[in-house]
Each structure stands twice: as C-alpha cells, then as structure tokens.
Amino acid sequence: MAERLFYGALFILTLGYLYFAFVTIKAPIQYDPLGPETWPRLLGLLMAVALAIRLVRPSGVAPDVARKTIIRLAVVAGFLLLYAILFQRLGFILSTWGFCSAVTWLLGTRPVKAVIFGAVVSTVTFFVFTDLLDLNLPGGLLEFLD
C-alpha cells in the first residue's frame, strides 16, 4: 500500500514535470537541435513508464513502521525545521543549544543533562568552527562574541 502510494505521488509529480517539458520550456532561438526541452522530455517519459509498471506490479515491500516511531520522527523533523528557521535569527550558539538539548531529551536523556549537553556542544563547536576552522556561522543574538 505504502509503495503504491509513493509511486502514485511520484507519477503525479512526473506528469507535472512532463507538462512543463512539453508546454513551457522553449528557447526563443534554436541553438542546438535538441534545445533545453528534449532532455527533460526523455527523462519524464522514461520515468512515467517505469512508475506505471511498478504501479501495476509493485515489488511488494511493506515497511512496517510503528505509529510511535512515525510520531517520534515527525517531532524530530519538526525540531530540524525549527532549528533551520532559528539558525540565523537566534544565531548558531542559541539555536544549536536548543536543538541538541531537545533531541537528546526526546531520545531519553534527563532534562538537566540534556540542557548541559546542548550548552557544551554549541559553545565548543562554535569556537572550533569559527576560530579554528575559519568557517562562517551566524552570531545572531550573541553577535558581540565575534
């Protein structure tokens, strides 16, 4: 079921991909015989055929993922998204502190330990990356540390 659903979703995306390849992508002057549209057309058609075959005859994988696991993964994905949004606004140290603490806590560490772990990781990695390796990381609210 999950497999067919996946192929179905990809199939719809491929139809959209093909629509653009056949309708909108066009060069005003022909530079080369194929132009920018032929390659996407070939790929899209091949993909549509491959997906159609597997839609009719799926390979029969049925991943069994427990509801609990899915929820846990969704929460982690949410943490990641929040981390991405706050990365620049709060700066590396604060956002990383929050992210590391949240994930270790979610995976079964006691809250106090998780907060300490996040604090150590975020400050140590910040100075290793910016001072030692000279990489560019956002200072955010703690900009004055630079």
């Binding site: 990641l80 975020s122 990489l135 560019n136």
Partner: peptide, 26 residues
C-alpha cells in the same frame, strides 16, 4: 542519543558555511 543531534549540527554547519542561507537548510 548524543550522536544523533551532532549529525544535524554538522549537516547544518556544512550547508550554511558554504551557501549561507536558510532556504537550503529547509
């Protein structure tokens, strides 16, 4: 459980240090 968030941190540092925007993180 300590290793897992570190992978996320390394991944974000890599993307941000080279490309420098949050769209690519998402």
């Amino acid at each position: 459980r300590y290793l897992t968030p570190l992978i996320g941190v390394l991944a974000f540092v890599g993307v941000y240090a080279v490309i420098g925007n949050t769209f690519d993180l998402k």
